[in-house]
């Protein structure tokens, strides 16, 4: 493809870093959400989480494929053979599924950011990414709709439901801010109009999530006094990622040359 040949080195590195961050987030959260299969609080949610997990897996595969087109290994090799510190996902997606309220809140906070991110990337100067992002929009629309509906329902639910949702909001918020950890390539990404940058994304995200949370009767955490959970974008991860990767690659690594 023409676009790829025109990329200069610095720009290529910046794009690759961006793609890895996006793809790894999708892969790891898709993996986590799939852990609800057979265990959801109601069958309908079991099915919904599986469906969203499949979308995320599919999206990560498409993004790895894009990386492959600009010189990286094939998607399976990238996803299943890298070392833990080579993954660029944020901490939020690494955490175990926990209770349903945690998984739901994570799904809400993360997917709201995704929806805005891919909407922004729809006008990226990097054509192949713009194209893919437009394709993801439909799937993400369903994910955010699902999340908003549930946050609202459980925020207004009876019993200890509101308290549980509030507790997971407080737990997830610092992790969610880690989604927007700036990369070392913000200037070039913004300058080249590839991506508007994490700072702008975070602002737009706050504008989107706060009204929903308020609507659900939840107390908004004091953002100024929260320390964002950074490190993931640089390959520094929580204790939860390694066991996840070990499990994910257990069969694949029996023989990486074999066809499965």
């Amino acid at each position: 493809m023409k676009e790829f040949n025109e990329l200069n080195d610095k720009k290529t590195t910046a794009i690759k870093d961006l793609l890895y961050r996006l793809a790894d987030d999708q892969l790891i959260l898709g993996h986590r959400n799939s852990e609800w299969t057979g265990l959801g609080p109601i069958l309908e949610e079991d099915i919904a989480f599986s469906s969203m997990a499949q979308d995320k897996l599919g999206q990560s595969q498409a993004l790895y494929q894009l990386l492959h087109q600009i010189g990286e290994d094939d998607p399976d090799t990238i996803a299943f053979t890298r070392k833990v510190n080579e993954y660029k996902c944020c901490h939020l997606v690494e955490y175990p599924i926990g209770e349903y309220n945690f998984s739901l809140m994570r799904h809400f906070l993360f997917d709201m950011s995704e929806a805005i991110r891919f909407n922004m990337l729809g006008s990226s100067s990097f054509e192949p990414l713009a194209k893919i992002s437009k394709k993801f929009k439909g799937e993400l629309k369903y994910h955010t709709m699902h999340a908003v509906t549930w946050i609202n329902q459980l925020g207004h639910g009876s019993g200890n439901s509101p308290a549980k949702i509030q507790a997971s909001l407080d737990e997830c918020f610092p992790l969610a801010l880690g989604i927007f950890e700036p990369s070392g390539y913000e200037d070039i990404l913004i300058g080249e109009k590839i991506f508007f940058g994490e700072k702008e994304l975070q602002e737009k995200w706050l504008e989107a999530v706060i009204p929903v949370l308020k609507n659900a009767n939840l107390k908004i955490p004091d953002i100024k006094n929260i320390k964002a959970s950074y490190g993931g974008r640089k390959g520094i991860h929580t204790e939860y990622l390694k066991p996840l990767i070990d499990e994910m690659t257990e069969v694949y690594k029996i023989d990486t040359k074999a066809e499965w």
Partner: peptide
Amino acid sequence: KGEWVRLALLRSE
């Protein structure tokens, strides 16, 4: 583990 969710829904408007 899912009981509180089902209860919350039961009475949610």
